[in-house]
Design a protein around this nucleic acid. Structure first.
Lengths: 214, 214
DNA sequence: GTCTATAGCGCGATAGAC
DNA sequence: GTCTATCGCGCTATAGAC
């Protein structure tokens, strides 16, 4: 760990989604690693830093994870699965119209990033610290999640509900709103998560144009 | 440098803006560091890695920079200044209407991120690897750049040209489009930079609503 | 599953010759 | 301004006792 640095995130403390392991020490390690990786980065956080916060000896961590990289890989896996599951659930409960489906997807995307900002940051900034083998499952989930939005947009365009100037660029812009959230949004602020999710959905529909924008 | 990893960026090779130093070795160091920091991250790139690519001995770098951190600081400075200068020039040449000014700002924001993707990534992901003292000038420029967009939006809202659901959230969404560009945009693709800049401007105006959206 | 101790290596940076 | 050589330290990970 290098010397006096500002922390990357506004949010505190690190929150894992419910799907994470409930087992005691393994979960504590993941939560602590999440906090440190999010604030300082994976490569700037040492096994010794992690052990110190956990009040364990460095060697004790190896009873729970076979390497520092496997701790990161588990966080990346949890993050991608939680995100993908949230998108799928949102889509499933959304009804058939593209506008309603976009609204549901964007709300879920935004909620995930706002409620688990550390996980979002680690997933997005540290994925490339993993060997391709360990990163592969996450990359696959990433592509599937992107496809969920892309397909809804395509269908909306096909049936003239949407008229974006460029569907792929619009999809990237919609995704970007959520991905950048952890860097400026303050979870305890006047703007609550549900309102924010609605605002993002509204902005997404405006970008997509057509009759759906309110 | 850790073992087999995918690179963070699609773009190749690293491009510095014209404002960067033209001097020989110093510039070569900056260009090479930019490429390595963008692809592997600052903390995962060693002085030895840098020297190897440059075909120099590690100690030779210290004739040009007093530390590895100062190399990063210089890149961060160059990146922030080029970005801020581009926004200011765009605004200056834009005429008085808020819609025209937003279009100019977004076009400049997008062009900067598309034309210098490595610099954008390093500036955004590695700023927090700097001590607060070295990061301070960049943070100041960042705030000034954000204010340029925020003020134009505010004026547009005040004179009823814009009707965003929430000006601050819309500003963040507009900025996010550009910031995320380096992670998906392929500079040599069918979609050229100017078209992309126009598309982003169009999306921004749609989000801001009002009479200005085309 | 935690401890003490340490192996083995790579790191950033410096000394001093040329 | 580049070289050779190296200091001193922190790193990931392992060995082996309890």
């Amino acid at each position: 760990m290098s010397p006096p640095t500002r922390s990357r995130l506004r949010a505190h403390p690190a929150s894992l989604p419910p799907s994470a392991p409930s087992d005691g020490t393994r979960r504590r390690i993941l939560e602590t690693a999440l906090q440190l990786f999010a604030n300082r980065g994976y490569h700037d956080t040492s096994i010794r830093d992690l052990a110190k916060v956990l009040e364990l000896q460095p060697s004790a961590l190896y009873a729970h994870f076979s390497s520092k990289e496997h701790v990161l890989a588990e966080l990346v896996r949890i993050g991608h699965e939680a995100h993908h599951d949230a998108l799928q659930a949102a889509l499933k409960s959304a009804g058939p119209e593209p506008a309603e489906q976009v609204r549901a997807l964007v709300r879920a995307h935004t909620r995930t990033h706002a409620l688990h900002p550390q996980l979002a940051v680690v997933v997005n900034e540290e994925l490339y610290a993993l060997t391709p083998e360990l990163a592969a499952p996450a990359v696959l989930l990433r592509d599937k999640s992107a496809a969920l939005l892309a397909e809804v947009i395509e269908r909306g365009v096909a049936q003239r509900s949407f008229s974006p100037p460029h569907p792929r660029v619009a999809a990237a812009a919609i995704s970007a709103m959520g991905v950048r959230l952890p860097y400026w949004y303050e979870p305890g602020s006047a703007l609550d998560v549900d309102t924010l999710a609605d605002l993002h959905a509204e902005l997404a529909l405006r970008m997509l144009g057509g009759s759906a924008a309110s």
